[in-house]
């Protein structure tokens, strides 16, 4: 993939990933075949800020965990009243980082 496309991807998608991973993602993109570009662009990445809002509003029922794909933790959170309310609050601080992690895992699967 040429540098222009890789830079464009990084610029438009930087909010979905951890900042320290961006250089590694760019390197990987440069090594990837051009034919994968459309697929990479068409993945639905989860918006970290939106997940934080969902976590504040519906975190008590584990909805945030269900949406990002942590089904096991989602069910556990639902069954324990949001971890007695403690986990709900802990997740307000963890969910953005976890969303970025999940986004990176999705991209890594495609780039592998």
């Amino acid at each position: 993939m040429d540098a222009q496309k890789a830079d464009m991807f990084i610029m438009t998608h930087s909010k979905f990933f951890e900042p320290h991973l961006l250089p590694a993602i760019r390197e990987k993109l440069l090594q990837t075949d051009d034919s994968k570009f459309m697929m990479i662009q068409s993945i639905t990445y989860r918006e970290p800020v939106l997940m934080l809002i969902i976590s504040i509003l519906g975190g008590h029922f584990g909805i945030d965990r269900f949406i990002i794909g942590d089904m096991g933790l989602g069910v556990a959170k639902l069954l324990t009243c949001g971890g007695l309310g403690i986990w709900t609050i802990v997740d307000w601080f963890l969910i953005m980082e976890r969303t970025k992690e999940v986004n990176f895992e999705k991209l890594r699967l495609l780039l592998a």
Binding site: H60, L78, L79, T80, C81, G82, G85
Partner: peptide
């Protein structure tokens, strides 16, 4: 009572009473 849902709405949540 730690249940935020119950405190806000006054109704029990699915896991209230566990």
């Amino acid at each position: 009572n730690t249940c935020i849902f119950r405190r806000v709405t006054g109704l029990p949540c699915p896991s209230c009473g566990t």
